[in-house]
Write a protein that binds this DNA or RNA. Structure first.
Length: 479
RNA sequence: CCGGGUGUAGCGAAGUUGGUAUCGCGCCUGGUUUGGGACCAGGAGACCGCGCGUUCGAGUCGCGCCACUCGGACCA
């Protein structure tokens, strides 16, 4: 760019200030809008469209695994929330309460749902009687409210959109299988739809969900090597069912308590997508959730036949099922290039007079900037292949980032130094004591991300206390 | 919640010892343009974050609040 015109929509370089880069992308790519209440964000049409695409992929998988959608109430009476002790203790600090109805004070205050376990439990205690009623495989798409102290676009809203699955089973075995099945659904969506590699594992007791017996998690690594918990699946045992008096009569005519799970995936993942794939030109979207997969930019559109030729390409691609947009505005081509790069559109197709003579167009990949001249014949196939190549390219790059920033450590000092110097996931053995976990947090600034399914035997003892080790743990600085 | 920074037009900024506000980009209209952020002409757009106070007079000074932001603690 020869002229030095100020780039009005320019974003901060991520190397210079990653946090500012992130905020710039959220706002300049039209994903997020601020409101006058802290932590309450608007998902603008372009941002919401990404969520809709994620939602569509997820929902199809939920249905395929036998789940049905329901809608539960927004408000939870305090008495109901208090029935499970650990649960209420965990969520109490971040509950918002409704205390007035119109101009009258309510007898019992109502919590704006931070999660809906208690509502499902109350309902199930009413409708479950027989083993024939089980399993119950429910899911709801909704928003929940948590009065967070620090808020950031996508990563931490006070109100956020999510899905929460809730299921009830006759046996513990079945419930555990469900918990693991849904974790795998999350991992599948992350890797094959969002091109985000995950580490699957189990949360330590300190990090697990309030009221859960066991929490499974998928952890992702961001470009700045911080960790993002990107979805969790909880096994509750029969704790909630007992607290809420849910019982059923089994085949053997014995009254039993069923076993429960819940699992959640939120708009936070969009923040993860931004911080996994984005670059200094802005957002980079995985093709499978990009609201616009191909942007068609006519060059010299005023010349005879150019717009018609572009429209023909748009029609062909749209008919083939791609999400396509043509920008026929009178902005300069360079402006359009920058604009759609900032918005993360995976493929750009340029078509001008010179291309028309050769029956070709220019195709540019957002992930690596690669430009190629391709024939207009069979453009649908070329676009399909290139979009897949973009997905694969994004995944490979993110996988490399993850793999290259996982380091074993054999002492607390070493773990601390590695985190400080290189960031990423530090893996160590662990004795299983919460005290050692606290020390890692206090001295190295890292929380346990998970006890990964893929265990390695790095040593015999816990590097923090020297006692015999039980597991290998991934540690990291988390969002 | 604790500590630092910031709030003037959609965005970025200027605003002197207190005197009702300036510039660039963007936006609108018309025309010329279009292969990496076009050009000419005309035009519109500001509760100076909110409230209270000091003052003849506050964008400017004081106090309180709100929001954004960066660290921490807490959490999806």
């Amino acid at each position: 760019m020869a002229d030095n015109k100020k780039m009005v929509e320019q974003i901060t370089d991520m190397e210079q200030d990653f946090a500012q880069w992130y905020t710039d992308v959220c706002t300049k790519a039209d994903l997020i809008g601020y409101t006058s209440v802290k932590g309450m964000f608007i998902l603008r049409p372009y941002g919401y469209a990404i969520w809709e695409n994620i939602q569509r992929e997820m929902d199809a998988r939920f249905k395929a695994t036998g789940h049905t959608n329901v809608a539960m109430p927004l408000l939870i009476p305090e008495s109901l929330l208090q029935k499970e002790k650990d649960h209420v203790e965990g969520f109490a600090p971040e509950c918002a309460w409704v205390t007035m109805g119109g101009s009258e004070k309510l007898d019992e205050r109502l919590c704006v749902r931070p999660t809906s376990e208690t509502l499902f439990c109350e309902h199930w205690s009413q409708i479950v009687h027989s083993w024939r009623d089980l399993p119950l495989l429910y899911n709801q798409w909704c928003s929940v409210l948590r009065w967070e102290k620090t808020t950031r676009p996508f990563l931490r809203h006070r109100e956020f959109l999510w899905q929460e699955g809730h299921t009830l089973h006759a046996t513990a075995q079945e419930a555990i299988e469900e918990t693991e099945r849904m974790l795998n659904v999350y991992a599948d969506v992350c890797e094959n739809i969002l091109a985000m590699p995950v580490v699957k594992g189990i949360k330590t007791d300190k990090e697990k969900f309030a009221g859960a017996e066991r929490t499974y998690t998928i952890e992702c690594m961001m470009h700045d090597r911080k960790a993002l918990q990107n979805g969790t699946s909880h096994y509750f045992g029969d704790g909630f069912a007992k607290a809420f008096g849910i019982t059923f009569t089994d085949k053997d005519n014995v009254q039993k308590t069923p076993f429960e799970t819940s699992w959640g995936f939120t708009t936070r993942t969009i923040g993860g997508v931004i911080m996994t794939h984005g670059d200094n030109s802005g957002l980079v979207l995985p093709p499978k959730v990009a609201p616009i997969q191909v942007v068609v930019i006519p060059v010299a559109g005023h010349k005879p036949g150019v717009m018609e030729a572009n429209q023909a390409v748009v029609d062909a691609l749209t008919a083939a099922g791609f999400r396509v947009k043509m920008d026929a505005s009178d902005k300069a081509p360079g402006w359009k290039f920058a604009e759609y790069e900032m918005k993360g559109v995976p493929l750009r197709l340029e078509l001008g007079p010179k291309d028309m003579e050769k029956n070709q167009c220019v195709l540019v990949r957002r992930d690596n900037g690669e430009e190629s001249f391709v024939s207009l014949d069979g453009i649908e196939k070329t676009v399909a292949d290139t979009l897949q190549a973009v997905h694969d390219g994004l995944f490979a790059k993110a996988k490399r980032n993850l793999d290259e920033h996982c380091y074993p450590a054999f002492s607390l000092e070493e773990a601390k130094a590695l985190q400080l110097e290189r960031g990423g996931f530090i893996k160590t053995m662990w004795c299983g004591d919460a005290d050692c976990e606290e020390r890692m947090k206090a001295e190295a600034g890292m929380s346990s991300r998970c006890i990964p399914f893929d265990q390695e035997h790095l040593a015999d003892v816990c590097p923090i206390c020297g006692k015999p080790a039980k597991h290998m743990v991934y540690w990291g600085v988390a969002y």
